Each structure stands twice: as structure tokens, then as C-alpha cells.
Simulated scan of single mutants.
Amino acid sequence: MADFAAVVLAGGRASRLGGVDKVMLPVGGRTLLDRTLAALSGADPVVVVGPRRPAAAGVRWTVEDPAGGGPLAAVDAGLRCLDADEGVVAILAADHPHLTRETVARLRDALRTDPEAGGAVLAEPGGRPQWLLGVWRVRPLRDAMPSEVRNRPVRALFEALDPVRVDATTAEVSDVDTPDDLDRAQAADS
């Protein structure tokens, strides 16, 4: 049994990319979703919140109800698929092409070193937290989840858990929201 679970947010409209299925875009010969799943090697279970797509075996799929409710609704839907109230869950957006197993391991290690923290979150250079790049203690996360999650910001939920901030490299927090972002990610990976 793994010592952590994972929830991957793989929905969204990708309006700045013309509405394409963003997480299925290739970077370095693998889709953004596959790259994220590779960074979560060892997690069990892995829940992907978004439309079902070709992906690694053993992934659980769910969508927020109703679909399109935003990241907090997606986090809530993913948590509902976890069996245990205890333990740690990595919560990652699937549009960060340069996350690695080492990134997730650093987050998990940071959380282990601070038993009072509700989570550990990557912070971009300059200190701004990337709320959808973190690991969290399941029970406090569930306890802090508001009853209304649709179209509400995730920041308030995660900020209330007083997470450890883990310095990220610029590459780790880079995401793909625009065609230029995709071009940069592909160039960095070639």
C-alpha cells in the first residue's frame, strides 16, 4: 500500500488554447497528463478529475458534479474518491510539464518535517504559492472543505491549512495556458 494518494485536476476549458484538450498536448513525446501521472509514481490511488481519456492503467476517473464547477469543486470530487480519512494526498494540476517524482518527494519530505502543517505547497521564485501543486493531510483538508465548492477559489481552503512553502524551480511551476507556453515547454524539453 502506498503512503500517499493523488488527485490530478485534468478538466477546464483551455480557452486561451482555443479549447483544445490541454492535458493531451504533447511535450517531449508524452502528454501533459502522462507527465503528471509519471511524477506521481508510487501514489495509490490516483484519481483524475476530468473527462476520461487514454491514460495509465489503474487510474480512477471522476468529474465534479455538475462539471465545470472550477478547481475547488474538482478537488472536492477527487477527495470523495479516496477511501481513507488519514494519510497524505498530492493534488496537482495536470498542466505543469516539468513536475517530476523528485518534486513530489520534496513536497512529501517537507510535510513530514512539520507535523503541525496541513500541507506543503510549491512556491514560485518570489514566494507566491502554487496552490494546485502540493501535498496535503487528508483529514484537515476534508475538515476545511466548504459545503459550497462550485466556482469558489481554492486559495482560501489551502491557505487555511498553513502549509509549508517549498521553493520551486521556475521550470517546476511553469504551466501551459497559451500557445507560447506550449512552445516554451516543448523547447525546454528538446
Rank of each mutant, 00 (worst) to 15 (best):
V154R: 12
E64M: 12
E102L: 13
D114L: 07
W131C: 02
V75H: 04
D189F: 07
L82G: 03
D189I: 11
S147Y: 06
T103G: 09
D167Q: 04
G68H: 07
A77S: 09
L92M: 05
G68V: 15
G12L: 11
V20M: 03
R30D: 11
Q130G: 07
K22S: 08
R35Y: 00
V63D: 09
V75E: 06
P54C: 09
R155W: 14
P146M: 12
E159I: 12
A10V: 12
T62W: 12
T62D: 13
A14M: 08
M145E: 09
R152N: 12
P51E: 13
R101A: 10
D143T: 11
V63F: 05
E159N: 15
R152M: 14
L157Q: 01
D189L: 08
G118T: 05
A187H: 05
D183Y: 14
R165G: 11
V166W: 04
R53I: 10
G127P: 02
L157S: 10
Q130E: 10
V166K: 03
R80F: 10
V121N: 04
V121S: 03
D180H: 05
G50N: 11
T103S: 10
L107H: 07
T100K: 04
R101G: 09
M145C: 09
T169V: 04
V135K: 06
A185N: 01
A171N: 04
L40H: 01
R150S: 13
E124R: 13
G70T: 14
G119F: 13
R35N: 03
V48T: 08
A14C: 06
T170W: 10
V49C: 12
D143E: 13
D162F: 13
V176Y: 10
D85T: 02
V173Q: 06
V48I: 09
E86F: 06
E172L: 07
D21Q: 12
R108I: 07
D143Y: 03
T170D: 11
P71S: 14
G11S: 15
P153R: 05
P97T: 00
E172N: 06
R128P: 07
K22V: 01
T62S: 14
V176W: 03
V49R: 05
R106D: 14
T103I: 06
E172Q: 05
R137C: 07
G42I: 08
A2I: 10
A43I: 01
V104D: 02
A144I: 11
D114Y: 09
W61M: 12
G18R: 04
F4E: 03
G118D: 07
T169M: 06
G29W: 05
T36R: 01
V8S: 08
V164N: 09
R101H: 06
A110Y: 08
T36N: 00
A73F: 09
R128T: 11
V27R: 09
G68T: 14
G127K: 15
D177S: 03
A117E: 01
R106E: 15
D181M: 14
A120F: 01
G29E: 04
T62A: 13
A56K: 00
A57S: 15
R35I: 00
G11W: 02
A38C: 05
V173I: 10
R128F: 08
W136M: 15
G50M: 13
V8T: 09
V63L: 08
I91L: 12
V176P: 10
G18N: 02
P54K: 11
L82K: 02
L37S: 00
Q186L: 07
